[in-house]
Write a protein that binds this DNA or RNA. Sequence first.
DNA 1: GAGTCATATGACTTGTGAGTCATATTACTT
DNA 2: AAGTAATATGACTCACAAGTCATATGACTC
Lengths: 214, 214
Amino acid sequence: MPKDTFFNLEEEKKEKVMRAAINEFLLHGYENGNIGTVAKNAGVAKGSMYQYFESKKELFLFCVKWSTELMIRKYGKHLTRSERHINVFEYMYENSKEMWTQLKEERELVIFLQNVFLGKYSSVKDESMEFMIRMIDQQVLKMIREGKENGYIRKDIDDSILAIFMTGVSMRFKEYLMNKARSAGEDIVDEDFSQFEKEVKGISELLRNGMGEK
Amino acid sequence: MPKDTFFNLEEEKKEKVMRAAINEFLLHGYENGNIGTVAKNAGVAKGSMYQYFESKKELFLFCVKWSTELMIRKYGKHLTRSERHINVFEYMYENSKEMWTQLKEERELVIFLQNVFLGKYSSVKDESMEFMIRMIDQQVLKMIREGKENGYIRKDIDDSILAIFMTGVSMRFKEYLMNKARSAGEDIVDEDFSQFEKEVKGISELLRNGMGEK
DNA sequence: GAGTCATATGACTTGTGAGTCATATTACTT
DNA sequence: AAGTAATATGACTCACAAGTCATATGACTC
């Protein structure tokens, strides 16, 4: 946890520091991320960084916490809505569309959190990250159980296998979207999500009915 | 490329050096991987490492090359066999089973290469890695095209989407197997692959027919 | 056994960047 | 306005590990 000094800062400054840090870690990774650069980009002296945080590691871990909380604060309504009774096959669509919006508005944060999730920065892993990953697993499992109960998911295959199947596809597709956004720079994100409509539909269809010829 | 001095070494010593390096990078990542430790574990002086390699980066990149080539040399027959006319749905089974054997015999190398593939070590990415990744993509696309021609893959969905779907599932499952092996240490790898028979069958079935209730 | 390569060695140099600290600045209180 | 507490600053320390190099060892030739 950061020191009191950090929490006493005005909101705007806190945000500037955090975004500078996240951007630095995003660009150079944890080991090569430079606190001096973070300070400079946040318009703050290097020494101040150590009035705010105990160490580089603490700063990094708080980046994860801060991003996660910001994303939940900003997009949380959707998350809780989808937790209710959404069809697994619509999940992919909803999820991808949501991510596209987030990518437009919070590019760095989304990519940073994806990296965390994918296990880059593995040298700073801590329990909270494991927790975050388990949370998502849990949510998928819940959806699968509900799907079975409501009769739109086949019951002859184990939940855990269905979960691996689903998360595999959904993560890979998410990555695909992200790479499109990442490699094309800022501009492509301005485009409409509708261009992916067909692709998402294809993936959902495959999830539902598989690749086998009828 | 390593220096001549390295290539003049007797095979056994070369291997000892490479395995020590791979193990070090596996344990501590690229940035925190220590050349001194590599040297010590290989039974060689630190200075010698610099008679063999220009820099740490060169050593790392050669680890990737060396592992890949060793794996191809050792298991390549299977790879070329599966390139011929294997059914996509059997691919998963063959592939997982193969990986289980490899995991038994070449634990460190398999996990190291998987990490490379998953984009950890992103600070040392070079063209050869991108190449390796594109190769695998290509292979999957080829299988899909053949599957469509031979009438066992549906034709109403784009190849690229089918590829994302397939690689997503197969990579996620591979990771699942790997984690089982990784977390349980050396011992679990001794067990027979047959324990996963049911799970692999489940995944293949899902690939073919999807999760939707009939 | 003298002379000439090729290789091995580990103490040393050096760049780097995390973390410190004495001092300056600002903010708040009476 | 004086006094005190909180925060800001950037030059400095210092540990670490990549990379160097002078010297030692060995291998091979005549």
